[in-house]
Design a protein around this nucleic acid. Structure first.
Lengths: 337, 337
DNA sequence: TTGAAAGCGCTAACAG
DNA sequence: CTGTTAGCGCTTTCAA
């Protein structure tokens, strides 16, 4: 036979109290006489009783678990956000159900639905473009949603990001000040508004204020992987590119390696600055200069915001913009700020 | 008011059947007259009914979610395993609750308990050493556990790994054949039996069969990070090391960069071969030679094994050893197998 | 093929 | 400070 699972009822019987009282001590309700509490606690310990969270969830309509939709855990960028999310979740007694979406729209909808079926108390979404269907699903359920490292131009739900436009503009301006004229904008699909709208806008702004004409040929779109980055190097060099602002770290390290392999000196003849400051930047040689996106913090703050919403606390501003810095390392001439 | 959550009861009423019947169609029970099924399905669609998984879990005692204990999602090695786990989990209609443990014993016990409280149907554990307390908890509950990329010398629970001893012995022998005499064993804490027992044993075996004496001074223990690896480089060089077998990819890329920065040529004067073949190997320049640990597969197979156990199917062998290959790339003189 | 009814283990009024 | 009593939304016998 199975070891009989022991319930709140068993504890109540053994302690000669009602299950309501047991429930109270389990939930830390102060309205219990110390001696009673002690007695109950003893029995709980003796019987090795463990409250059934599922039953709890059904009765209280709260599961203390939040759903996290992530493109791919294997991507250091998102993994770092996830780590921030989980730490804060744990701090507030929540668990996370992690689901990979591969940025695939159907999968996202699908995953969202099973998350809602599981009655998660909230959802953190990381991804790309928020499609209309997804937005519709979000607003159709009353389950709160917060976006982490993901923008929704509509700002219907909470979100945590940095000012991508200003950050890009900032670093590109510095490149220009340093004398670079032919600066490439290297990025994964522009479909992601962070790249296609915000960062690209920062890039254009920087060019504009320096009187440099925007050249569509200097925008390179590719998969966010090392090899594509490495392979595109000669291509950029042939075009006379002398610096690149890259929006993904894997792409950046690939490009860096490709450029060096082609015999071009970095940073003397070719500068590179990337955007996420994930741990990849220090695996590079020379180490990659980068906008210091506070990855962990974005995840942590997003989760914190979500706890507030779930808790129905007052929110001053649900669209949060975190500060950022820039780390000038080995792939730029400028080595400090 | 809240939008009233619609229940199986509402569907039953609207469709003029009993909730039992609705339950049957929702669960794909064949004992329902096609016309009835059709009618119910229509109502479900019209009312946009979504079964409450929590209630389901309570009634059926199955949650279709498994707990995954991971040291740190941010670590590419574990993240890759997690990806394999999630994909197979999804395939079998399970969701995963992901919990970071930081290899911290208390946290692990703690996490395990909340996972059990949430009535997960199974657990996948990734980590380090299985402490006695943890093992005790594992066997105390009837919830099945499978280890992924983690060994338990006791083999009480299921596990998926490769033959770490043979793999290490293999690559180190090749290094010796190539003429290397002073080969370092560079590793994160030896407390993990994969490193401290298995791989180290392979290292010793290789030395032994070549008549080389084991030198304790050639074993370097460090954190599994890039910087420690980079910093230890000169240290190794001073000791006359001319090759290194590294058990962690981050450590390996750090060491590689450190060695090159010190002006030593790789692979001509110093060879490096690492162990996990995570995506880090191709971020290195030259690319890191590595034992091809089938990361994704280990996770996938572990989850598959778990589904079988949860399903109470016959298991031929719960201690699974996957095959591996070796990729000789730029950090070894030998460039093919 | 379908329905009635008894739980699953716990929370949350409500009463005392 | 403590007990009684309804449910929470669904699965699952057991009958019909």
């Amino acid at each position: 036979m199975d070891k009989q699972t022991i319930t709140i009822y068993d504890v109540a019987r053994e302690a000669s109290v009602s299950m309501a009282t047991v429930s109270r001590v389990v939930n830390g309700n102060p309205n219990v006489k110390p001696s009673t509490r002690k007695k109950v606690l003893e029995v709980i310990d003796r019987l090795d009783y463990r409250p059934n969270a599922v039953a709890r969830g059904l009765a209280s309509k709260k599961t203390t678990t939040v759903g996290v939709i992530i493109p791919d855990v294997t991507n250091v960028f998102f993994a770092s956000l996830a780590r921030g999310i989980d730490d804060i979740a744990t701090m507030y007694k929540y668990n996370i159900i992690l689901a990979n979406s591969d940025q695939n729209e159907n999968k996202e909808i699908q995953v969202l639905n099973t998350l809602l079926a599981k009655q998660v108390d909230g959802i953190i979404y990381m991804g790309n473009k928020i499609t209309d269907e997804l937005r519709a699903e979000f607003s159709r359920s009353k389950t709160p949603v917060v976006l982490a490292g993901t923008v929704d131009p509509d700002q219907q739900v909470g979100s945590v990001n940095i000012d991508y436009i200003a950050a890009a503009e900032n670093v590109i301006s510095k490149l220009i000040e340093g004398g670079r004229k032919n600066i490439a904008f290297v990025t994964p699909p522009l479909a992601n508004p962070i790249n296609g709208q915000y960062r690209l806008k920062g890039y254009k702004n920087a060019l504009l204020s320096s009187g440099i004409a925007f050249n569509e040929e200097f925008v390179f779109e590719s998969k966010a992987k090392v090899n594509p980055g490495e392979n595109m190097a000669t291509h950029l060099i042939e075009k006379g590119i002398d610096a690149a602002y890259v929006t993904d770290d894997e792409l950046a390290i690939g490009l860096l390696n490709g450029v060096i392999n082609a015999g071009v000196r970095v940073p003397e003849d070719f500068e590179i600055i990337t955007s996420n400051n994930s741990k990849i930047v220090e695996m590079a040689r020379p180490k990659l200069s980068s906008i210091m996106l506070p990855l962990y913090d974005i995840g942590a703050v997003a989760m914190r915001l979500l706890t507030k919403i779930m808790n129905k606390e007052e929110i001053d501003e649900k669209t949060i913009t975190l500060p950022y810095k820039v780390a000038y390392r080995g792939t730029t001439v400028k080595q400090e700020d």
